Amino acid sequence: MITYEDRRLRTLADEGRWPELLGIYRRARVAAAALAGEDRAAAQTAPLGHLIAHGAPPEVAVRLFDEDGGAGSAAGVGDHDAGPLWEVLATRHSWRRLAPLLGPPAVRRLVAHTRVLLGEDLSYGAEPDPEGVPLVLEPWEMAGWGEGGRVRDYLRSGGSRSSLLTLPADREGLGPVELPVRRERLPGQRATAEFAALADWAQAACVRGGALDAAAQFAPGSRVTGGYVPFAVVYPVLVQTGAGARPHGAARGRLAVWRGLAAMAGAGRPERAEVNALIARLRCFTWCDPADELRYLHAALEDPATGLSWAVSGADFEG
């Protein structure tokens, strides 16, 4: 297995011999795939891939994802160490540097949205997103992150720094709330499936009624500690939930949340105007669960225009 303790590889990196390291990465990945399969190859070579994505010039780093080294030699969107290799790369260079070099469409799209999350406006000069997700952050996407970054801060050694976002983060501003009797859920709603897909620990449900009716679907009892919050507070935690652990990345979280909001608005694809109109009228409720530990989400989203509300709830006890 390639690790950062391999002194020779670290020495090559210190000396800036990045093409040589790329060649080692490709040969090791092909050999590991032949012996143990694609998943094992990705895991074994990920630390070296991280080192290249983090430190190499963009002209070399982007070639991690190119197949010009032969079948099995390229990293895919799922290759990750402390985080996806494409996300590590995206945190190191601007879109202006990366755009002329990146080839694979899936990697290109995720890198572009990572740069958007980092604050770049790519609405001009970049190819449109295939789903229509805007290539610039809306004001409500920027407002609720606090001191934490929207994308992990990756370290050369392979680690990363990120904020642990939870909803509710604390009990400030919350109080005792009596929830209504549970209503029958509305099946077959596309937004329900989109929100449930944010994470394997997330549950989602849709009801005809208000935010409290939706919260009653997952709340631990009829009386909870809860309160209404702006959607700007909910959004970062939804993105973090969709980003998940190391294999996913913040760009995937953002794309997943936009798909869910578009479905709530009844749009076939993420239309910017329709989603913004939805956000302007949403009422959002959050509540506490005594079982909450480190990573959890309890949110109910009410759309007064349709009379429908969605709840997204769960806790990651392994995260």
Rank of each mutant, 00 (worst) to 15 (best):
3 T>M: 01
9 L>D: 07
10 R>G: 15
10 R>W: 05
11 T>K: 15
13 A>V: 06
14 D>S: 14
15 E>M: 12
19 P>M: 06
19 P>A: 10
19 P>C: 09
20 E>D: 13
24 I>E: 14
32 A>E: 13
33 A>Y: 03
37 G>E: 05
38 E>C: 00
38 E>A: 13
39 D>G: 15
39 D>C: 00
40 R>D: 14
43 A>M: 11
43 A>W: 06
44 Q>C: 02
46 A>F: 08
47 P>A: 11
53 A>M: 12
55 G>P: 03
56 A>P: 08
62 V>Y: 02
63 R>F: 00
69 G>N: 04
70 G>D: 10
76 G>L: 05
80 H>Y: 10
80 H>P: 00
81 D>G: 09
89 L>Q: 11
90 A>W: 08
90 A>M: 09
99 A>C: 06
103 G>H: 02
105 P>S: 07
108 R>F: 03
110 L>T: 04
115 R>L: 07
115 R>T: 08
116 V>C: 04
116 V>S: 06
120 E>I: 08
122 L>N: 10
124 Y>C: 01
126 A>I: 05
136 V>C: 02
142 M>Q: 15
143 A>W: 05
144 G>D: 11
145 W>L: 10
148 G>A: 15
151 V>P: 02
155 L>P: 00
159 G>D: 14
162 S>W: 13
166 T>H: 05
168 P>N: 13
171 R>K: 09
173 G>N: 03
174 L>R: 02
175 G>F: 02
176 P>W: 08
176 P>A: 14
181 V>H: 14
181 V>W: 07
183 R>D: 05
190 R>E: 15
195 F>S: 06
196 A>Y: 01
200 D>A: 07
201 W>E: 02
201 W>H: 06
211 A>E: 14
213 D>F: 03
219 A>R: 11
226 G>I: 08
226 G>E: 07
232 A>S: 15
234 V>G: 04
236 P>M: 12
239 V>P: 04
242 G>W: 09
245 A>L: 13
251 A>G: 07
252 R>S: 11
256 A>T: 01
257 V>D: 12
258 W>Q: 13
260 G>A: 05
263 A>G: 04
263 A>N: 03
264 M>A: 01
265 A>W: 06
267 A>K: 02
270 P>I: 09
271 E>V: 14
273 A>I: 04
275 V>Y: 04
280 A>Q: 13
281 R>E: 06
282 L>D: 09
282 L>Q: 10
284 C>R: 13
286 T>N: 01
290 P>A: 10
290 P>Q: 08
291 A>F: 07
300 A>H: 11
301 L>D: 09
309 S>Y: 12
312 V>W: 05
313 S>H: 15
313 S>Y: 13
316 D>Q: 03
316 D>Y: 07
318 E>F: 10
318 E>L: 14
319 G>C: 02
